[in-house]
Design a protein around this nucleic acid. Structure first.
Length: 326
DNA sequence: CAGTAGGACATCG
DNA sequence: CGATGTCCTACTG
């Protein structure tokens, strides 16, 4: 499972989750405006310089994006850009691009093993993140299966993820299959500024599909410790209830604790930290661009009489409680 | 001013 | 038909 060849300085890095990357920590041009108006995409996404795995970016922590972007995960360390990009979509099992000056055999073996571990983690995390996005958006993991609507959802998601201005309008009436058959030039034609970035992001998804063969699910235990995941594992195109959606967000504290989190998981008490964001996520999930917290909270209130969600005994703003906690 | 509560009606799968 | 989505009024901290 050796593909690409990240430099040895990366092999010791702590990979928490590579999610979708932003910028290298070493990049001094870390700031870009908060408002979408003048937003520059994370540099690492342009031209795929950070690819070390077919279509996979290594994790890089971006403090700014973290502030408001729940999909950006906190990184304690971030590796610098690595190895030459490999755009191969099909993971070629043996593709050892040996370093220019091969280290001693011993060193080489150790390094390779570290490398493999990191890569395995990275792949695993990417797959998890794609899986999470699939559940939340209710789309299939394989872009080839996407309808026009699915493509739009994915684009909206990607816009939000990278804080792009609206690009989805440039891809109307485009199916997943169309999308996959487009070249990077085609993407750039639709969006001169962000086409390559979208192309790169799509590449991640397509690669994730291909990588599954190399990293079979093997998480028979995760279903056990996360009984609610079953509820969500019904995509594509199963209607989802708001309470299920909220629960799903809550069960991914790693990704979403900035917008919603447990105050008391045992009692099912949770707090919506960023009402606008949760509403936006719900809107994306349900294809309701006009969704806002006012409407979302109205729906939550409907749960009062159904006995699904209630206000906790000591009522507090933005705090609710599942009547039947897990 | 944002959140809370709940009525009324529309929409959609 | 149920589960919201939308809009609204009144109230609250």
């Amino acid at each position: 499972m050796s593909m690409g060849s990240p430099g040895c300085e990366h092999t010791g890095c702590v990979v928490h989750s590579p999610l979708y990357i932003s910028q290298p920590l070493t990049d001094t041009r870390m700031s870009w405006p908060d408002e979408a108006e003048d937003v520059k995409p994370p540099r690492g996404l342009l031209g795929l310089p950070e690819l070390s795995w077919p279509g996979v970016y290594l994790p890089c922590y971006d403090r700014l994006a973290m502030e408001e972007n729940p999909w950006m995960l906190r990184m304690t360390e971030a590796p610098a850009p690595v190895a030459p990009p490999s755009r191969t979509l099909e993971p070629s099992p043996a593709k050892p691009s040996l370093p220019q000056e091969p280290p001693s055999e011993m060193e080489g073996q150790v390094e390779e093993r570290c490398l493999e571990q990191v890569q395995t983690m990275v792949v695993g995390e990417v797959l998890k993140d794609v899986d999470t996005a699939c559940k939340l958006l209710n789309i299939a993991p394989d872009p080839l299966d996407w309808s026009y609507v699915h493509v739009q959802k994915w684009l909206l998601w990607t816009e939000h993820l990278y804080r792009l201005p609206q690009v989805s309008t440039m891809f109307q009436e485009v199916s997943g299959r169309d999308l996959c058959s487009m070249t990077e030039a085609d993407f750039r034609q639709r969006s001169s500024q962000f086409g390559d970035m979208l192309y790169a992001h799509l590449d991640i998804w397509r690669s994730a599909e291909a990588m599954k063969e190399y990293c079979p699910p093997e998480d028979s235990k995760s279903a056990a410790d996360d009984p609610w995941s079953d509820v969500m594992r019904t995509y594509p195109s199963q209607p989802i209830h708001l309470w299920q959606f909220l629960r799903e967000l809550l069960l991914k504290p790693h990704n979403y604790s900035r917008c919603i989190r447990w105050l008391n998981k045992e009692k099912g008490i949770f707090k919506i930290e960023d009402s606008a964001l949760v509403a936006r996520l719900w809107g994306i999930r349900k294809n309701r661009p006009a969704m806002n917290y006012d409407k979302l909270s109205r729906s939550i209130r409907q749960y009062y009489k159904k006995g699904i969600i209630r206000k906790p005994d000591v009522s507090r703003r933005l705090v609710y409680q599942f009547v039947n906690p897990v």
